[in-house]
């Protein structure tokens, strides 16, 4: 009897540690994918699909041991170009007869869509191994990143079995429908370190203009609002004052993240003579929610389920 009990205990321990090990292995593989996207040099073509739209993008990414350079050219429709150096992103965006130069802080450009610190993701998602599949002529291991609750979407990642590079990623809603996908259909590693390709293709016939800077950092303590409990796993990552088109006064803009998804919260005073906005919608992977809190118009937008934008909007309390 005692022997049987011991055997059972030993088996249980073995089983638990085995699944733990598999669990750790999957996180290690994801960690490797997060790093490989920055640390490898590669070029290829990937297809980006969101809602009804789809674009092919040519990418060249170089890591010279110290710095990271990438150039992405949209091959379909308008010839938009995205150049990045480290976390600095510059977009050459054709608009009418002009090219507007936009600056961004990019941390999630495919295939580098994962943060290198996975702690926040570990807290909010579960990871398990899926099947193996062939993508862009490469063998890939599928990793399934399931949301722990209905406040975020789930993901599937195809990781190159040899290089560890992310070959494909899809975002799924609770009904397992694909909302967004990015996938290489052609990929090669490169060893050259020259940088003569790292420049935009200049169209001499067009005027190049810088995008208007319409935000300033907001380090001030909020006096007219405060936040109640946020949806689980979301933390504030940024706050600024922003001039919004058609608004007389600057709008407070806060950004929340759960490690993968981002949500924007806009707080502004209700304007005299302008009807307050109340409503919600879901377009593709983007949810929108607007309501009124006391004297404030509250607007929330993000690539998250509707429940999350509603919770963030309802966390705003007007301080009298």
């Amino acid at each position: 009897m005692l022997f049987k009990r011991l055997l059972l205990a030993a088996l249980l321990t073995a089983f638990t540690s085995a699944s733990q090990a598999a669990n750790n292995d999957s996180w290690q593989m994801l960690q490797k994918a997060a790093v490989a996207a920055h640390a490898l040099s590669y070029q290829g073509i990937f297809v980006c699909q969101s809602g009804q739209q789809s674009k092919s993008v040519e990418i060249k990414h170089l890591f010279n041991g110290q710095h990271e350079f990438a150039r992405n050219v949209v091959l379909d429709g308008l010839p938009r170009e995205v150049l990045s150096q480290g976390g600095e992103v510059v977009i050459y965006n054709p608009k009418n007869e002009k090219i507007v130069i936009e600056k961004r802080r990019g941390q999630n450009m495919f295939p580098a869509i994962l943060p290198t610190d996975l702690e926040a993701i570990k807290a909010n998602y579960q990871l398990k191994f899926g099947e193996t599949e062939r993508v862009a002529d490469r063998q890939a291991q599928i990793l399934v990143l399931d949301a722990k609750d209905n406040l975020r979407y789930s993901y599937k990642f195809w990781v190159d079995s040899e290089y560890g590079l992310l070959l494909k990623s899809v975002m799924l809603n609770g009904k397992n429908e694909v909302l967004d996908s990015m996938a290489f259909n052609q990929l090669t590693l490169i060893s050259a370190v020259d940088l003569d390709w790292f420049k935009p293709k200049i169209d001499a016939k067009k005027a190049y203009v810088m995008e208007d800077v319409n935000t300033i950092a907001d380090k001030q303590e909020a006096t007219h609002w405060r936040l109640k409990a946020l949806p689980e796993g979301y933390v504030k990552v940024d706050q600024m004052m922003r001039a919004v088109k058609g608004k007389a006064s600057p709008v407070t803009h806060l950004i929340f993240s759960d490690g993968l998804a981002s949500v924007s919260l806009f707080i502004e005073p209700l304007e005299n003579g302008i009807k307050p906005r109340n409503g919600r919608s879901l377009v593709g992977n983007t949810s929108f929610y607007a309501n009124v809190a006391g004297n404030l118009q509250v607007t929330v937008v993000g690539e998250v389920p509707e429940a999350t934008v509603a919770k963030i909007a309802n966390a705003v309390v007007f301080v009298k």
């Binding site: 969101s50 992405n72 995205v82 999630n108 935000t215 950004i255 806009f266 929108f288 937008v301």
Partner: peptide, 20 residues
């Protein structure tokens, strides 16, 4: 509303919003 969507994507771009 486009103004909020644009504002969101300019400060917190999703990985597809760079291209679409």
């Amino acid at each position: 509303p486009a103004e909020y969507l644009m504002a969101h994507q300019s400060s917190a771009p999703s990985s597809s919003s760079y291209y679409i």
